Simulated assay, not measured.
Amino acid sequence: MKKEQSIVQKFEALASEWELEVAGCSFVVEKYNHPAYQQIIEMGPAVIPLLLRELEIRPNHWFEALRAITGANTIQPEQRGRIKQMAQAWLNWGRERGYQWKAFN
């Protein structure tokens, strides 16, 4: 349980830093290249439920992190640029694979 808590705490700290520092940034590449975002990716599969939780609560650009960690590409061409639709595609992907993220709320 302690390891899970430390992963959640580290993720939340990095996610907060990333959101604060890229707020208002219109360049997606800058968002993806931010050091905090890259550190989240480096945390690996343990953060998949946390990323899904974030997408459900407040959709944001977590798509590249999920793609980098999972190797999956759930976004259809017609969904590109539509944050809510892109988020829903990943949430569906997570549910289909048995991920649970409500417990982290």
Results as ranks from 00 to 15, higher is better:
K10Q: 15
K10H: 13
F11S: 00
E12L: 04
L14A: 04
L14I: 01
A15H: 02
S16H: 00
W18S: 01
E19R: 15
L20A: 03
L20F: 06
V22H: 03
V22M: 03
A23V: 09
G24A: 05
G24N: 11
G24S: 07
C25Y: 12
C25M: 01
C25V: 07
S26K: 09
S26L: 03
F27D: 11
V28K: 09
V29G: 03
K31D: 01
K31E: 03
N33A: 10
H34L: 04
H34R: 02
P35W: 10
Y37K: 02
Q38H: 00
Q38L: 04
Q39Y: 02
Q39F: 00
Q39S: 04
I40L: 10
I41C: 10
E42W: 05
G44L: 06
G44N: 07
A46D: 06
V47M: 10
I48F: 15
I48Q: 05
P49V: 07
P49F: 14
L50D: 04
L51T: 05
L51W: 02
L52R: 11
L52C: 02
L52A: 05
R53S: 12
E56D: 07
P59A: 15
P59E: 14
N60H: 10
F63K: 11
L66P: 01
I69D: 10
T70C: 05
A72L: 03
N73V: 08
N73R: 07
T74V: 12
T74L: 11
Q76H: 12
P77V: 12
E78D: 12
E78S: 10
Q79S: 09
R82L: 11
R82Q: 08
R82I: 09
I83D: 08
I83Q: 10
Q85G: 10
M86L: 01
Q88G: 06
A89C: 08
A89I: 08
W90L: 08
W90R: 06
L91N: 00
L91T: 00
W93T: 02
W93H: 10
G94H: 11
G94R: 01
R97T: 03
R97D: 13
G98Q: 03
Y99C: 05
Q100A: 09
K102V: 07
K102S: 04
